[in-house]
Design a protein around this nucleic acid. Structure first.
Lengths: 184, 184, 184, 184
DNA sequence: CGTGACTCTTTAGAGC
DNA sequence: GCTCTAAAGAGTCACG
């Protein structure tokens, strides 16, 4: 029977909530215990927490997120020697890729003129120039590991952000994902 | 001139936010400092925080809040020897008061039969009985300081919550306050 | 066998944490559901939350807390017609009571001269005067429900806080409670 | 003059805190306004927040953080086609680099046998094999953009985490940074 | 289009 | 000193 006088109902609500709070605290304590165990095993708790956050995303979300971060980082000059990932390149070149139908393969063409060491400033200038002449970010001529690769990226992105265009769609997250069917 | 390329605009936004965050942190640190000063002066920080919260309410809000708390406390048997305040009595008897036009003055009539000490259970029973016979909570016959006063309150409130009625409006907060005219 | 290679151990930790997080979220959702149920039944969710907080305290803690709040309220002039509770009076008079051995009973002596209506300011002055002449806060001559009762309280407390003394122990919470024996 | 009675001091504390809270709220509102402006300009607010967080770190912290994240990601099989960054490679090979004195340059040696397309599983196996034969993670033979590059990374890292060794120091953050001299 | 609820993030406080 | 927890604030979403 459902209680229908206010005092008893209030009491019932309060007690149910209290019981659930106890349960939740117990689970929380278990979480803490496992975290502490992991920490004492030598793992970094913060990084583990980050992994758990990322694992909660779908692959698409995760990739879009990190691509966006890299794009913004490049624009703000925060690459610091870590060039954009292939993922970010793909994100920025999304539409062009569709149009041209070619993938990332044409980037494996280390032009001889960039094979020898050049200064970061020069690489940056080359990146900017590349953007202006319609090259895509995936056409970065410097191979992985080359310190000039990041500089070229920065130059390209900076130019891409400086040409007076409005903010292009690559800077935005995909608007929404259709909700998966849950319980009605 | 408004910057109209995305990189420069992004940079501007980020820097403005960062500057404001610094400002906010400074203010927060000042708050912490004052709180700590107060604490070392011997005041209880939590109670001070509570006072600040209450001072942020209007008098009406504050009174309604504490009256509601007391009403719920009484229903849950948490009065523990601290009888309901006049404020709570007024809240619970809001409507009756309008109808009868009398205030709290008729409560200063310690009936002779309750003047001598009785057990808490008996006081509780009297309170419940009083509710059933249509008495208002302000008619508690026990004077302030009398340990039976709280018990009578509890009896009255418990009965008021047990009579099968739906939850009466006294249990709810006044729905909305008309917003005071701010800057347009 | 305990896994002893880092990859597998990391994976195990992450999965255990994830599973527990799911559990915790489920419990949290149940809490939300019950709260929402209570709300739709007509109870005020905030007040319920407050009750749960208070029920988590021991009686002593709760009484000390509310007594402290009232003391601070009185000092800040926030009583607004709700006189201090017996509980707060007891708290403030803790030590004197031990010394004198008398309880609250000597307060049921509405002196004839205060029986007729006086102005709040006058009541306040009487309270201040009472403090100066060594009277205790429990000796408030105005009965419950009398609007002058709160004013007298305010006068007494204000005077008690203005006499140049350092902050007395009544303004502090009892330092610590010895922890009850839990599971080892 | 310093107030030395408790009531006045309490009042002073409360008012100072309240004033600061108002200030803080104002700054907060300005932050909200700028964020909203940025959002309407087409930037992603979350990513901006992330950038601000990262800009608050030193370069070293940021690089260590992201390197650790990638290492953990690789171990958990979360690379998903995004190979480890040069930064992460450097982190993992920190000590070896000191010993061998060579940088990342010896990785530009795409062995002919890996130049043609192979399956992810095969690339993974090659990575694991490479670890077992003492190769460093920087010796990934697949060039940037090659889908096999990530798989090789995963294989290498998985093997590095599976060989029964205790968790190596690369998995931990650098213990502490000596605090920069602040105001005394 | 405005409002209200819910979630998440951040931050301050308390304990080991 | 560091971590964890809890509360407050902000942001987003959905609904009226």
């Amino acid at each position: 029977m459902t209680l229908n006088n206010s005092q008893a109902r209030l009491f019932s609500f309060v007690e149910r909530i209290e019981r659930l709070i106890v349960e939740r605290r117990e689970v929380s304590e278990q979480i803490t215990a496992v975290k502490s165990e992991a920490k004492h095993a030598g793992f970094d708790p913060k990084v583990i927490a980050q992994m758990i956050k990322e694992r909660a995303m779908t692959d698409d979300e995760r990739q879009e997120w990190s691509a966006l971060c890299e794009l913004y980082r490049a624009s703000l000059g925060m690459l610091n020697g870590t060039p954009m990932s292939d993922n970010a390149r793909r994100h920025v070149s999304r539409e062009s890729d569709e149009g041209r139908g070619e993938g990332v393969d044409d980037m494996f063409d280390p032009s001889p003129e960039s094979a020898h060491a050049i200064s970061p400033a020069e690489a940056r200038a080359q990146g900017a120039e590349a953007f202006k002449s319609g090259k895509r970010v995936t056409e970065n001529p410097f191979p992985a590991g080359d310190p000039s690769r990041a500089s070229w990226d920065e130059g390209w992105c900076a130019e891409a952000g400086s040409d007076g265009m409005d903010i292009p769609p690559e800077w935005r997250r995909a608007p929404k994902k259709a909700e998966k069917g849950e319980d009605a």
